[in-house]
Write a protein that binds this DNA or RNA. Structure first.
Lengths: 113, 113
DNA sequence: CACATATATTTGAATATTCTAATATAACAA
DNA sequence: TTGTTATATTAGAATATTCAAATATATGTG
């Protein structure tokens, strides 16, 4: 169960396990953006953004190309978005379940302080 | 970009970012198993397994039901497996890309020691 | 009740990830 | 060459995750 493949899979999911990296992928949904553009959309500072881009690059979620001094990032494998959409279906259901538990805990009452 | 939803999404992926937890989900693909059975399949010790099951439970990837002293775990949302299969398509391609880079680095040669 | 079995939780140390700040690099323009 | 803009990398501190060991709990049995 700790085969190289299992460990690699875990790295794959870890690469997605950060809100900035998810925001990057979201921002690139409609097409490539430069780092500066990403910075504006995501509101993260230069160094942070660059470090997270590096992780996504290492794991091949994004590719980059230089044009003069600007670097454009892209998600070449469009199936990534199908995948993220499927993820959304699942976690929305999971959240709903948590909601239901809360309601059962406090039926027609305020939550205790 | 650090909205509660983005943060929750990140938690969702983090929950999958561990080889033991992926092994658990794999083991439950064909149906429910008890903790003892999981221990045998996954070869992880009791405490570790239980801690990872707890994370999967909190994030609603698994549900559990007690039968006498035995607790059976299950993945009630079968779409999770579609999702994991899609993930596999993607990371297999990502791995292939890494392979190609290696080949380019050392064309028709052994890798340097 | 006392004990056994199955599983869960807690605690602290070990390890990994993230952030901040500073520095480095690459390409171009003057 | 010097300066400027865009981006990347590094180092160390801050934070989070994981693991191992010990302990707790829940259920059933004699």
């Amino acid at each position: 169960m700790n085969s190289p493949l299992h460990l690699y899979k875990a790295e794959f999911f870890k690469a997605l396990g950060h809100s900035v990296r998810l925001a990057i992928l979201d921002a690139l949904r409609e097409g490539p953006l430069s780092v500066t553009e990403l910075q504006a959309v995501i509101q993260a500072d230069q160094s942070i953004l660059s470090q997270h881009l590096a992780k996504l690059r290492v794991m091949k979620f994004v590719s980059s190309r230089r044009e003069k001094t600007t670097i454009y990032y892209d998600v070449p494998d469009r199936e990534v978005y199908q995948f993220l959409d499927l993820a959304k279906n699942i976690y929305v259901r999971q959240l709903q379940q948590s909601q239901e538990m809360l309601k059962e805990l406090a039926p027609s009452e305020e939550l205790p302080e």
